[in-house]
Nucleic acid binder design. Structure first.
Lengths: 223, 223
DNA sequence: CGTGCACTTGACAGCTGTCAATGCCGGTGG
DNA sequence: CCACCGGCATTGACAGCTGTCAAGTGCACG
């Protein structure tokens, strides 16, 4: 399915909310974030995209792009046309179903994010977010340990959990004081995973990627 | 695809988070809500389900049900097996793609909900939620006007936007005082749609259900 | 060495949660 | 028909979390 490549630098926008027909991309390298801008000008970050993520799927359902996507680091994208997506459904029912399943995974992640943002205290949201990012980083690099590079600024994190930078920083100082984590400019270390998990209060999610209801791969795939 | 029927009364649970293999349902009649429970016991309502909604899709990606679903009114469900979902992908690429598209619509709705919950003040979240529900009700009954039945209690609404009942009620009194809306036990009337829309601060969403990339219906559909 | 950006901190006002009590309404049993 | 009851809505007082404004610090980069 992979079409042309796009390369962007940190801070450049992959797409803007309101743009006519939104593009569809596979993130090959780098980090990105999608966001939504309020009429007031405030922004809410919706999701962090890591390599392997499909970008732009929700906007397929809309006549205008529903979210903006900004590159958080240098980024490499593979452009995917809508037509090739349609062909995927025609020719590869199994792959189409797996893509559908991946969308459901993202919905689960979005549900968890929504719930943790709804939590009243910032420390709970922050714990949940950092564990979420850590899990995602570990999924692509299982032996990364408890310390990882995280290109988001404190402003970004604040926008992700819907609080102000000032308050995020205060909350962060508090958690550092409790020895829960360490955080230098672009590096985060999870020190007390259990305590953070208790703070977050969210259930663990076990993905199920080999569901028995998926069409078998031999059906109409390739050719 | 429709299999057997299930009927539930208000307050009964369609499924519980953590249950082994989650079921898949089409909501035929009534309202339902899916929720997530924190370790602390607090609950966050994630989404309101109206007739026509598919229930249980996100949990397809998990080994245990990701959310609980409770009936808010008397409810009629059509049970859908996972196998018939798999067959849909094999036999009806167009319908499968449309189901995929519906999932993306729900992701957009979830994104908007997430953003509005992230908004700092409760009045913004509440305005956004009520407009969202009103839009959804109008979508199934276009000439319903500005007044509609809404079976949610104030506790439910509070759990949807992540605040306490007490504060929701205070916010509500304030909005009533401003003449923005009327709200008796189970009936809501939108009085100043423009003002509410400005409060919500979210962009309008125009769905795109006849995308040109969808497989044509003649392909392999029904024989 | 100067500049700019991100991070940090303090003071204060305002929004929100908690606790508690009261009122309202529909349904139930006598 | 009436008294009672339980669920839901409403209100007040108070503490605590969060936003805003403003200033200061430290580090990377030219």
């Amino acid at each position: 399915m992979g079409g042309g490549r796009r390369y962007l630098k940190r801070g450049e926008f992959i797409c803007n909310e309101g743009d006519a027909p939104a593009g569809l991309y596979l993130l090959l390298d780098g980090w990105a974030a999608s966001s939504l801008t309020f009429a007031s000008g405030a922004r809410q970050l919706l999701k962090i995209h890591l390599p392997g993520d499909m970008i732009g799927m929700p906007s397929l359902a809309l006549q205008q792009a529903g979210d903006s996507v900004v590159a958080l680091t240098q980024v490499e994208l593979s452009v995917i046309s809508r037509q090739s997506l349609g062909q995927l459904f025609e020719r590869s029912p199994r792959l189409a179903a797996i893509l559908f399943l991946i969308s459901q995974e993202e919905r689960v992640a979005g549900m968890d994010r929504l719930a943790s943002i709804g939590a009243t205290e910032a420390v709970h949201s922050l714990a949940a977010l950092l564990l979420h990012i850590h899990d995602r980083v570990r999924r692509s690099d299982p032996d990364i340990g408890d310390s990882f590079d995280m290109p988001l600024s404190q402003d970004d994190i604040a926008d992700l959990i819907g609080i102000t930078t000032v308050h995020l920083n205060r909350t962060l100082q508090h958690m550092r004081g409790d020895g829960l984590l360490a955080w230098t400019r672009h590096r985060v270390t999870i020190l007390k995973r259990g305590a953070l998990h208790d703070l977050a209060g969210l259930p663990a999610r076990i993905l199920d990627r080999d569901a028995d209801w998926l069409p078998r791969s031999s059906d109409r795939r390739e050719r």
